[in-house]
Write a protein that binds this DNA or RNA. Structure first.
Lengths: 224, 224
DNA sequence: TAAATATGATTGAGCGCTCGCTCAGTTTTT
DNA sequence: AAAAACTGAGCGAGCGCTCAATCATATTTA
């Protein structure tokens, strides 16, 4: 799966031609994504990346300055693609019988398509320098925010009962993570469920929380 | 947090004395867990591990034969501790107002205590040789199975309405992963929620699925 | 009982190799 | 002919792992 780079990056380069930087970095990122998914960040050598990108190691280091730079570019590119895909997907929430069900379906399908990329980020984020790790994690939150907005919008249209803000936020996290779960447990889940079955069951799981009037009325369940 | 080794391992050693192997390997694993959590597997050197364990590198290699062996021992130890803790925790499901709520609470508290270990496994499992990765992933499934059993038992006692087998299995996965979510999003979630608040909201989320009579009756939500 | 011997545990200097990165030099573009 | 883009041989640091030597303790011998 090819991956797009969002903006001119804060990573320095020796090359003057901006478009060239854009093009070469896309080559580098596309090559690196494949290799990282196959062997992981640490087992992949810069020489391999350069070769797969079709340039020399010397030239590679004109476009980045450390190997970690490449990982950062990769994470950014993946998040850009995730964010774009989810944004597009969530615009369709007007169709269908229940808008939240549509949102979940579209989002889960994005997770399905990009599952290798999602797993890659889970696995390699700790190899990033702390400064960039923070940036990548905050990007993750932006995808989450998309969900919070959709939830809020659905509620404001009266199609879901109101929720406390913190319950709403956590619901967004849950949807987000249950999507990721398909990615990193796919090797096991896909033996028992197709992606559509998975979506159906999980949609039921998430929606019933809201469609039967909030709390089940047994609160608190446990005395502490 | 100290970690226990379950059984005599299938990893070869040059040392004859069995108890010594057990003791030394515990030293090695304890040291490695700390270092791996701090710096990750690849950035940690075998020399560091030996030093932290209080032995020489030479001796280290009398007890294991590759660096990956150490990671395998670490993963096994963590899973043994998780499995033990969850088993103990799930035995208390007779108390409380709703047994599933108790199970969720106890399990989430285990995830809370062991969150660094859980994150470690998510991050480093791909550094294991394929053969052992499979073993570790299957151990993960065993924890899941504990949950399926508890669910089935609660249902058989009539305290939850019956579920299709595959819905039940997926519910076990969901509980399991929502526990993990606290571990790998703790840096962010703990700013808004205490572990108890998290447990309360998530319990509500999970239980309402079952306490309002299964499907919300709007099926299917989307026409395909 | 003391010395001699054998066995297992332990040490750490160092080998061999890999990999990130550089830079002197070449080719291409303007 | 100057600037920009590009090449790849090679440097040097670091790492996993080994092995000859040493130490500790049990066992045998005199």
């Amino acid at each position: 799966m090819s991956v797009t780079i969002s903006k001119t990056k804060d990573i320095p380069t020796q090359i003057k031609n901006k478009e060239l930087v854009e093009r070469r970095r896309r080559q580098i990122v596309d090559a690196a994504v494949e290799l990282f998914m196959k062997d992981g960040f640490h087992k992949t050598t810069t020489r391999q990346i350069a070769q797969a990108a079709g340039i020399s190691i010397g030239l590679l280091y004109e476009y980045i300055s450390t190997k970690e730079d490449i990982l950062y570019l990769v994470c950014e590119a993946i998040h850009a693609e995730m964010h774009a895909a989810v944004s597009v997907a969530l615009e369709r929430t007007e169709q269908g019988i229940h808008p939240l069900a549509v949102a979940i379906r579209e989002y889960f399908l994005v997770c399905h398509r990009m599952s290798d990329h999602i797993v890659l980020i889970y696995q390699e984020i700790h190899s990033l320098p702390a400064k960039w790790r923070k940036v990548v994690l905050e990007n993750e939150l932006k995808v989450n925010a998309l969900f919070s907005e959709v939830l809020a919008s659905i509620i404001s249209r009266g199609e879901l009962p109101p929720l406390e803000a913190r319950v709403l936020t956590l619901t967004a996290h849950n949807i987000s993570v249950l999507g990721h779960m398909w990615a990193f447990r796919r090797w096991m889940l896909s033996a028992s469920y197709t992606i559509n079955e998975y979506i159906d069951i999980q949609t039921d799981f998430i929606l019933s929380r809201h469609l039967c009037g909030g709390r089940a009325g047994l609160w608190p369940y446990v005395s502490r």
